[in-house]
């Protein structure tokens, strides 16, 4: 901090600060993405405004769509069966576009708890629950949840008894996964909309529970 610093400081120290985006190097893939984007715009394939809108639309997806699918599965056993067979088709029934990549629902039961990860990158059911949280993409989560899932779950506040088996789903290739939590006890009187509000993102990843 220099002496001509005119706000209310009577002490000399440097503040820790977060580096500006430009302070870290662009990697090859970022440069390639920027270059391809600029070329497509230059060639008139789409406009900058289209690109912006698309990014905004992707960023705007949250876990609400996935929560609606889960709540419907809780109230409608037929829907649940169809969802377990084909999430994308079941979602379409209630007007949700889950995209072309096949999504597989993995259902929690009293004896089984599911959790999802992508050890190779960051595969995630984005069209149903939005962009993955940073921790989902972190090396720590990706490497640890496959080898010590119970320890990782406990760090999220999810402590499972020994008699509940933990099943980790690593979406290494062409499928995406969505955890179907069990319907919590004491929710018999709730309607579908109220039920959907109980379904948090982390329950559909499987690091949190609402059902035990």
């Amino acid at each position: 901090m220099s002496g001509d610093h005119d706000h209310d400081h009577d002490h000399a120290h440097s503040h820790p600060h977060r580096p500006d985006i430009e302070d870290s190097d662009f990697d090859d893939y970022q440069l390639m993405a920027e270059a391809v984007g600029e070329l497509l715009i230059e060639k008139g394939i789409f406009a900058a405004e289209d690109l912006r809108r698309t990014i905004e639309a992707i960023d705007a997806i949250g876990p609400a769509q996935g929560a609606r699918v889960v709540a419907r599965a809780w109230v409608d056993p037929g829907f649940r069966a169809r969802m377990l067979a084909d999430v994308n088709a079941a979602a379409a029934e209630i007007g949700i576009d889950a995209g072309p990549i096949p999504i597989r629902a993995v259902a929690n039961t009293p004896g089984l708890h599911n959790v999802i990860v992508c050890t190779l990158c960051s595969c995630y059911p984005r069209l149903l629950i939005g962009l993955p949280p940073d921790w989902y993409k972190s090396r720590a989560y990706r490497s640890r949840v496959v080898r010590e899932p119970r320890v990782v779950l406990a760090e999220f506040g999810t402590v499972l008894p020994e008699d509940v088996a933990v099943q980790v789903h690593d979406s290494t290739a062409d499928l995406r996964y969505l955890v179907l939590p069990m319907r919590p006890r004491g929710t018999e009187g709730m309607d579908e909309e109220a039920l959907a509000r109980l379904v948090a993102r982390d329950c559909m990843i499987g690091v949190a529970v609402i059902d035990r």
Binding site: E148, H169, D174
Partner: peptide, 17 residues
């Protein structure tokens, strides 16, 4: 997978291969 695995013997991992 992990000889020192600390958890239930019932725990599994499923991957797409």
């Amino acid at each position: 997978l992990w000889p020192a695995y600390a958890g239930s013997g019932q725990d599994t991992l499923i991957a797409d291969i």
